[in-house]
Design a protein around this nucleic acid. Structure first.
Length: 699
RNA sequence: GCCGACGUAGCUCAGCUGGUAGAGCAACUGAUUCGUAAUCAGUAGGUCCGCGGUUCGAUUCCGCGCGUCGGCUCCA
């Protein structure tokens, strides 16, 4: 009988008959190991414990102590979930059920929605199937056979997958009892290996089949699972904790911003406290801009439709812009006819097309292209709320002749833009319809691109470091070679992509290159950060653009006295003030560092007779530039401290008879409690120094 | 935009199967003058998201709209 040699992780080798399974290898070592065995690694590849060995191999048994165990465990939980759903609701069709970052999900097609009660019932049935300890077995077959199997079971989604993915190679299915799934595997040996209480169904959501909005919407059950019950409990506890620092909750509690239905969804109203944070951030960034040779500019909130026609934003991004602002007469007509904004928009377009057609007819040839805007017609003399700042900055650049000696020109503006985000996308401060970018556009020669991009990245790093934002990732967004949505020549794209890649390499931070993530006009480098519930948000961005300079025919005079095309760089280290502050609220759990704290110091008089002294101290601190208040209410000190603490005021200064006599205060920090008595002057210097240094520490 | 859940006082939330609403905190008034995370008492506060429908009667049931939340899709 042929034999195979098995090498174990400790380096020892054993000989077995050919066809031995990893499980049998485990049994030969110890029955306990075999019982604990969830999967196996054969020559580094994760497989089922039942897969026979036909060659010499390195074999590692995967138990719940292995790093690889969790994804197998979760994947088998996903099958268990689908198995339970099919038993309870045979009419439901199964789609896909992969493992994701913190758990897994399974998509079903079923007419009735899954209710919370049903999720409980499904969990119960999952436990039943665990109790049966049904073996889970892999079976390989030609794709035609798998398709026939799922056709017979009336599982159209599985049938489709077998057809699509199988064509070139045999496919595998997994069986557990009467339940079959089209799946690559591997899986646990049996349903009994899943421990009750280690998984939890979390929520139901809609999801398009294959992620395509033209396809049917399925019902997705999100769930999570861990190898140990305590890990699941810990995970659920962290989810609860995360909710407490959600910027929407803290923003309300700390009165940082307000969104009002009547003003409009996705439009942020900054309270005085929130505005203070924003203003401090803007001051900070303005200082850095000054150091880096930027010039600050101001431009209006609207621009003519023709401007955005030239830039390519309109009508390309028509669906994500607010409807055009049209002449008052047109608005009167629209109001009389009670037509919606969207309708008004389509009228603008229709009228544009009609006019173009008539002009073309008169000229006997096409002089005005489809979608082109006629600016001399009243109806069409419209404006757009600006979706981006670049066209305005480009016009500033173009308003004067430039020599190569002027370059780079760096124009910066806290520019407010408006975008018609889909209603389902809006989210607190992180996804809004009106926001202010800490925007700038750099106009430079081709030779300067690399240095300028590196300068932008350095700025982002300074900002992130100052705020202690360390947990971010960097993405270099490249064009998708199969897509037509980009403008510009592939030659220029290659140059721009190379510039981004090279600049990213100088960052000293790992980055990923992602095709398809570029802007329509050029590649970009994005800084991405996660919110409290794990959603990723793009903050800072640096984008290289060879295309808008062409569309606007920008030139500068070179040393050779001929016209050259400048290259543009778009960059925004915060991204938008709204999103950035939203993320900062969560990052700091609402406890902003001293320099950003809306209220930096609160004086707490012990009794009414100390109020005048506290007011005097407060006046002195305010004169020095600190943001100070006095809690003059007739309340006990403990009560005032508790309130200041909950409002996350960095410094609380308690003052009674002792302090009044010695011109001192008793300092308490938000983080460290009672720090004892110190002279007012000493506190003032301490607080000013920490503010000036933009320190993250209070003590 | 799509699927689902939700919408009650400034905030956090109760309110079983239909009979026009409550608590805690906050606010206001009074008493208390207090030393490092909640003093006591009282008062006031609601178009139960909006509009229709069913019903003798709707916060409750149904429909539509608006908004929020979780996803999906999108994100210049």
């Amino acid at each position: 009988m042929p034999e195979v040699q098995v090498t174990l992780p400790d380096g020892t080798t054993r000989v077995f008959p050919e066809g031995v399974t990893p499980l049998e290898v485990g049994e030969s070592i110890s029955p306990r190991l075999a019982a604990a065995c969830l999967a196996a690694k054969v020559d580094g590849r994760l497989v089922d414990v039942y897969v026979p060995l036909h060659r010499d191999a390195k074999v590692e048994l995967v138990t719940d102590r292995s790093a690889d165990a969790l994804s197998v465990y979760r994947h088998s939980c996903a099958h268990l979930l689908a198995n339970a759903v099919k038993e309870l609701y045979p009419e439901a069709k199964i789609a896909i059920g992969p493992v994701i970052e913190n758990g897994f999900y399974y998509d079903f097609d079923r007419t009735a929605p899954f209710t919370p009660e049903e999720l409980g019932a499904i969990e119960g049935r999952m436990n039943d199937i665990i109790a049966r300890d049904t073996p889970i077995r892999r079976e390989e077959m030609p794709w035609e056979q798998a398709k026939a199997l799922f056709d017979a079971e009336q599982e159209p989604y599985k049938s489709e997958l077998a057809f699509e993915r199988g064509q070139n190679e045999p496919v595998s299915i997994y069986r557990q009892g009467a339940f079959n799934d089209f799946c690559r595997g591997p899986h646990l040996p049996s349903t009994g290996k899943i421990k009750p209480g280690t998984f939890k169904l979390l929520s139901v959501a809609g999801a398009y089949w294959k992620g395509d909005e033209h396809n049917k919407m399925l019902q997705r059950i999100y769930a999570t699972a861990f190898l140990a019950k305590k890990d699941l409990e810990e995970h659920l506890r962290r989810l609860e904790e995360a909710k407490l620092r959600d910027h929407r909750k803290l923003g309300k509690e700390l009165k940082l911003f307000h969104i009002d239905e009547e003003v409009g969804q996705g439009l942020i109203l900054w309270t005085p406290a929130g505005a203070t944070i924003r203003q401090e951030l803007q001051t900070f960034i303005s200082e850095e801009l000054g150091k880096q040779g930027y010039a600050q500019v101001f431009t209006p909130h609207i621009g003519k439709l023709t401007l955005y026609k030239t830039s390519g934003h309109f009508p390309y991004y028509k669906d994500s812009q607010f409807p055009a602002i049209v002449a008052p007469e047109s608005m009167d007509v629209a109001l009389e006819e009670n037509c919606s904004c969207a309708e008004l928009m389509s009228r603008v377009e229709a009228a544009s097309a009609r006019l173009a057609a008539s002009v073309n007819e008169r000229a006997g040839r096409e002089v005005i292209g489809a979608g082109q805007i006629m600016a001399d017609d009243k109806l069409l003399d419209g404006f757009l709320l600006k979706p981006m700042n670049c066209p305005h900055h480009i016009k500033l650049f173009a308003s004067q002749p430039h020599s190569y000696r002027d370059l780079p020109v760096r124009l910066a503006e806290f520019g407010t833009v408006y975008r018609w985000e889909q209603s389902g996308e809006l989210n607190g401060m992180t996804r809004v319809r009106g926001f202010t970018q800490d925007d700038a556009h750099l106009f430079c020669t081709e030779d300067q691109v690399g240095a300028e991009v590196r300068g932008c990245l350095a700025l982002v790093k300074i900002i992130f470091r100052t705020l202690g934002l360390a947990d971010y990732r960097v993405r270099v967004g490249l064009r998708d070679p199969d897509s037509q949505k980009y403008t510009g020549t592939s030659d220029n794209w290659d140059k721009a992509e190379a510039a981004c890649r090279e600049a990213a390499q100088t960052l000293g931070v790992p980055f990923t290159e992602e095709p398809g993530e570029a802007a329509f006009y050029g590649p970009k480098i994005d800084f991405i950060i996660k919110d409290v519930i794990g959603r990723e948000w793009q903050l800072g961005t640096v984008q290289v653009d060879y295309n808008l300079p062409i569309r606007f025919d920008l030139t500068y005079t070179g040393a050779d006295n001929t016209a050259h095309r400048p290259v543009m760089i778009h960059r925004a280290p915060f991204g938008s003030m709204e999103r950035f502050v939203g993320i900062l609220i969560e990052h700091f759990k609402g406890a902003f560092p001293l320099w950003l704290a809306p209220e930096q110091v609160r004086l707490l008089p012990i009794a009414d007779r100390h109020v005048a002294y506290c007011e005097a101290v407060a006046g002195e601190l305010r004169a020095a530039g600190l943001r100070v208040s006095v809690d003059a209410r007739t309340e006990k000190t403990g009560y005032k401290i508790r309130e200041a603490q909950l409002q996350k005021v960095p410094y609380m200064l308690v003052a009674g008879d002792r302090e009044q006599e010695s011109s001192s205060v008793s300092m308490r920090t938000r983080t460290g409690g009672d720090k004892g008595v110190m002279p007012v002057e000493a506190f003032k210097l301490l607080a000013l120094e920490r503010t000036r240094a933009r320190s993250l520490e209070l003590e």
